[in-house]
Amino acid sequence: MKFKHQLKNDVLILSMQGDLIGEDSGLDIVAMINDQIQKGIKLCVIDISGLRYINSSGIGVLITILTKFRNKGGEVCLLSPSDNVQKLLIITKLNAIFNIADSEEEAFEILKNA
């Protein structure tokens, strides 16, 4: 899995591509998240439109990210899950825990009102 991140209006935008199966990249993502939170970033959009597959370890990575931001008074929004990933979020009932948006503009609106 590949990921990249950028800051836009004090919102961390994390983009993931490939399969989120919790290998070393999961640890790298969490380390990067910790760095951003220490810099005062409280809002995060996770663009998962490029994810083909998520396993239980990958779900754990997403929940870890959400927990870290919420523990600091922040919020996370998932952006554009594929049909397969959307089904997984519904089956696991994570769609009730995560904010989910179809566009970056919608994600920013959700986070602004969080």
Results as ranks from 00 to 15, higher is better:
residue 1 M to C: 06
residue 1 M to Y: 05
residue 2 K to P: 01
residue 2 K to W: 04
residue 2 K to S: 08
residue 3 F to H: 15
residue 5 H to F: 04
residue 5 H to V: 04
residue 6 Q to H: 13
residue 6 Q to V: 12
residue 6 Q to E: 15
residue 6 Q to N: 08
residue 6 Q to L: 13
residue 8 K to D: 14
residue 8 K to C: 03
residue 8 K to H: 12
residue 9 N to S: 10
residue 9 N to E: 14
residue 11 V to W: 02
residue 12 L to R: 08
residue 13 I to W: 07
residue 14 L to G: 10
residue 14 L to D: 09
residue 15 S to Q: 15
residue 15 S to G: 09
residue 16 M to K: 01
residue 16 M to V: 08
residue 17 Q to I: 07
residue 19 D to F: 03
residue 20 L to G: 08
residue 21 I to P: 01
residue 21 I to W: 00
residue 22 G to L: 07
residue 23 E to S: 11
residue 23 E to G: 05
residue 26 G to F: 07
residue 26 G to N: 07
residue 27 L to P: 00
residue 28 D to Q: 13
residue 29 I to S: 03
residue 29 I to F: 05
residue 30 V to Y: 09
residue 30 V to P: 00
residue 32 M to Y: 04
residue 32 M to H: 11
residue 33 I to G: 06
residue 33 I to H: 02
residue 34 N to L: 02
residue 35 D to E: 14
residue 35 D to W: 01
residue 35 D to T: 09
residue 36 Q to M: 08
residue 37 I to H: 07
residue 38 Q to M: 03
residue 38 Q to A: 07
residue 38 Q to C: 01
residue 38 Q to R: 10
residue 39 K to E: 10
residue 39 K to W: 05
residue 39 K to M: 02
residue 40 G to L: 12
residue 40 G to C: 04
residue 40 G to I: 06
residue 41 I to S: 09
residue 41 I to T: 14
residue 43 L to P: 01
residue 46 I to M: 11
residue 47 D to H: 06
residue 47 D to L: 01
residue 47 D to N: 15
residue 49 S to I: 06
residue 52 R to D: 13
residue 52 R to K: 13
residue 52 R to A: 04
residue 54 I to D: 03
residue 54 I to S: 08
residue 54 I to G: 00
residue 55 N to M: 05
residue 55 N to D: 15
residue 57 S to P: 00
residue 59 I to H: 06
residue 60 G to I: 05
residue 60 G to M: 11
residue 61 V to N: 07
residue 62 L to Q: 05
residue 62 L to E: 06
residue 63 I to R: 03
residue 63 I to D: 07
residue 63 I to Q: 03
residue 66 L to G: 04
residue 66 L to I: 01
residue 67 T to R: 13
residue 69 F to T: 11
residue 69 F to C: 03
residue 70 R to E: 14
residue 70 R to V: 03
residue 70 R to I: 05
residue 71 N to F: 00
residue 71 N to K: 13
residue 73 G to I: 10
residue 74 G to C: 05
residue 74 G to W: 06
residue 78 L to G: 10
residue 78 L to F: 09
residue 79 L to I: 10
residue 80 S to V: 03
residue 82 S to A: 06
residue 86 Q to C: 06
residue 91 I to E: 07
residue 92 T to L: 02
residue 94 L to G: 09
residue 94 L to Q: 11
residue 94 L to V: 12
residue 95 N to T: 11
residue 96 A to V: 11
residue 96 A to N: 13
residue 98 F to H: 07
residue 99 N to R: 12
residue 100 I to P: 06
residue 100 I to V: 15
residue 102 D to E: 14
residue 103 S to H: 07
residue 104 E to C: 04
residue 104 E to W: 09
residue 105 E to D: 10
residue 105 E to R: 12
residue 106 E to R: 13
residue 106 E to F: 05
residue 108 F to S: 01
residue 109 E to A: 08
residue 109 E to W: 05
residue 110 I to P: 02
residue 111 L to A: 05
residue 111 L to P: 08
residue 112 K to T: 12
residue 112 K to R: 12
residue 112 K to A: 12
residue 112 K to Q: 14
residue 113 N to A: 11
residue 114 A to Y: 10
residue 114 A to P: 00
